[in-house]
């Protein structure tokens, strides 16, 4: 059974986009309370009735938008939810993500253009980031090859310089941020890995790949007119926000730290108080 993955808005308790609503409370209350037996919890449960399918939706939403096709498929089977419309499109995004993660940026750019050439045209910043990452990867291969102390011969960097001249330098003047980024990237060629200052070293961190991959995923989703961010992210943030608010207001009902339902609660306390 295939159908559009649409939110179960039907019930008045359903998840809404209203920040004043307490969906995140109910969400975390549910997650924290699953399997609890005490009476207070059971009373709350009445309030949470029917949220299970909402949570299923939230999870499916995450699996689809963040690219977990295998899990999404199984989840659809196990929950009797509708199958996400297009598992293949998820896999497509996963392939791009994996390519970026493993440093095959050129491949990734090719795949993105195959999906929709407009994506990168409409997101020049993303395009620049990808190219910057590609330059970093070219430099990285050189750096990795010359792991010893000796200086790297300058001609090894020729492909990197050529790439920077051809691809990045024409874009750099359009935005001061590009210029800074380009300069920082080029600086990677000056230092040996051991002496590199931290601010440049972070360019070589795989975290950057992750970030660019996430941005790419978002851009592809946006280009398809889908929500760029999974609902659960906003739920988690709303939960964190609520905690910050509660702390600021010094609401004394709340035990600190607040449980978000991932840890066992101290038995002496018995009941974790949810916001």
């Amino acid at each position: 059974m295939e159908c559009e993955l649409s939110p179960p808005w039907a019930s008045p308790w359903a998840l809404s986009d209203n920040p004043f609503d307490n969906t995140h409370q109910r969400f975390f209350a549910y997650v924290a309370g699953v399997g609890r037996t005490n009476i207070a919890w059971r009373e709350r449960k009445a309030d949470l009735k029917g949220i299970s399918s909402d949570i299923n939706w939230v999870i499916m939403d995450y699996l689809v938008s963040e690219g977990y096709p295998g899990a999404a498929e199984k989840f659809a089977q196990e929950t009797n939810l509708c199958r996400p419309t297009d598992i293949e499109s998820i896999r497509e995004r996963v392939r791009i993500r994996n390519a970026i993660h493993s440093g095959k940026i050129e491949e990734a750019i090719g795949m993105i253009n195959e999906i929709d050439p407009e994506i990168l045209d409409l997101n020049p910043q993303l395009h620049f980031q990808l190219l910057q990452l590609q330059l970093i990867e070219i430099i990285r291969t050189v750096l990795d090859k010359q792991s010893s102390q000796q200086n790297i011969p300058a001609q090894d960097f020729l492909p990197a310089i050529q790439f920077a001249t051809e691809q990045l330098s024409p874009r750099a003047p359009t935005d001061p941020r590009y210029l800074t980024a380009l300069e920082e990237t080029m600086a990677l060629m000056i230092y040996t890995p051991e002496k590199m200052p931290a601010e440049f070293k972070k360019l070589l961190d795989v975290k950057l790949r992750e970030k660019v991959a996430a941005d790419t995923n978002r851009a592809i989703l946006e280009s398809r007119g889908e929500r760029a961010e999974a609902k659960i992210r906003s739920l988690v943030r709303a939960r964190a926000w609520a905690e910050v608010q509660a702390r600021e207001a010094k609401v004394d009902v709340l035990h600190m730290p607040l449980s978000i339902g991932l840890d066992a609660v101290d038995e002496a306390n018995g009941d974790a108080v949810m916001t």
Partner: peptide, 11 residues
């Protein structure tokens, strides 16, 4: 949802 959990872990 065991199967999903496994698939999710794999993904």
């Amino acid at each position: 949802y065991v199967e999903t959990a496994k698939a999710f872990g794999k993904d």
